[in-house]
Amino acid sequence: MDITSHIEAGLATLTLDGRLDFATSRVLEKAAADILDGGTHRILIDMAAVPYVSSAGLRAILVAAKAAQATGGGIAIHGLQPMVADVFITSGFGQIVILAETGAEARDRLLAGKAA
């Protein structure tokens, strides 16, 4: 999986490309931890190029969301492919992170601090 990171005006954007599974979940965990450690507490994740998410991948998001929320921030995710969206919905992850159709909606809700 490739992850690109961009931080601007207190908002970090992570763009993921590839499968999010056991082999790659730690890369996401570390990327999110680095952002939080650097003092940015709101993370926008673009998952439009992620075709598959396993339990380990979801757990990485859970860990990142817990850490972000502990500092008063949060995580918003957008661009879920249909099969990946099924995984998020089945797992009830809409209660943990903001799930949005578009990047603009995700950004607005994250900056507004609205609960997932």
């Binding site: 599974d21 056991f22 082999a23 598959y52 998410v53 396993s54 339990s55 380990a56 099924d86 995984v87 089945t90």
Partner: peptide, 13 residues
């Protein structure tokens, strides 16, 4: 980190 799963299967990694 020995097992992973999805909606279809549980498998060793």
């Amino acid at each position: 980190g020995r097992l992973d799963s999805d909606l279809q299967a549980l498998f060793a990694v």
